[in-house]
């Protein structure tokens, strides 16, 4: 599905969280959404997912479901991983969970290599396992686009790599339009095809990692002086240096 969002605006009473954002994303593309805390990333994601009131227009062209994975809220419902993933089929679940629904849940767990966790209680899973279970939940709904809000927050570097690799592979395999909110700029440089940078609810830069990750734009978005240079595998590496003096 192709995303065409125009003039997206989200307001919470007096606060304007997202202010007239235009954003496009192509099928199969992985777009990383970056920005400081409070820059409107999550609000934009909620507007794109259609779970909050917003101004402007959000069009998903081509038809199909949009899979939205909110930030982890540490829910410890007494549900097994399998039950959590099965809920990804909520829109078509009958009271007696049909065979197609059960098969989709099992397939999604298998696709992410976590079928062995199926009967584990949600509360007993590690942070990385939880994120994979919730990713499987979204995939079980057979979406044509993915909206992932901070899928790697609170994960160590190994699990960040694991989760983002899984996202990348699933997106490529299924041709999913994928937008992912990240805090780690270097992870975005590594895993995203394009980067969109938000500052105070406005989009200040979109482009390939090489184009978007320039020192000026990042300084502007995060109020931090950064050094940007080539890393060991020719990708860009961003190193924060010092906060910008007020």
């Amino acid at each position: 599905m192709r995303l065409r969002a125009r003039g997206v605006t989200v307001r919470y009473r007096a606060v304007t969280a997202v202010d007239g954002v235009d954003l496009d994303a192509a099928p199969g593309e992985v777009l990383a959404l970056l920005g400081a805390n409070g820059s409107g990333k999550s609000s934009l994601m909620r507007a794109l997912a259609g779970v909050t009131k917003h101004g402007g227009s959000v069009a998903w062209e081509g038809g199909g479901a949009v899979g939205y994975m909110p930030q982890d809220n540490a829910s410890s419902a007494a549900l097994t991983a399998f039950e959590v993933v099965l809920l990804g089929r909520l829109r078509s679940l009958s009271l007696r969970a049909g065979a197609a629904e059960l098969a989709a849940a099992e397939a999604a767990l298998g696709e992410l290599g976590i079928l062995h966790l199926a009967q584990r209680q949600l509360g007993t899973l590690s942070g990385g396992q939880r994120q994979l279970v919730f990713l499987a939940q979204v995939l079980a709904g057979e979406p044509r686009a993915l909206l992932l809000d901070e899928p790697t927050s609170a994960l160590d570097i190994a699990h960040q790599l694991q989760v983002l690799s899984m996202v990348r592979e699933a997106a490529a395999r299924r041709g999913l339009t994928t937008i992912v909110v990240l805090h780690d700029i270097n992870a975005a440089a590594r895993f995203a095809d394009r980067i969109a940078l938000l500052r105070q609810g406005r989009l200040v830069m979109t482009g390939t990692p090489a184009a978007a990750l320039c020192a000026e734009a990042l300084r502007d978005a995060y109020a931090v002086d950064v050094a940007v240079g080539p890393g060991p595998d020719a990708r860009l590496v961003v190193v924060p240096v010092r906060p910008v003096a007020a």
Partner: peptide
């Protein structure tokens, strides 16, 4: 099923429809 989904939190339940 909707009540079960609600136990994952309001936002996730909304995301599930």
């Amino acid at each position: 099923w909707r009540l079960t989904a609600l136990q994952l939190g309001d936002e996730r339940a909304r995301a599930l429809g």
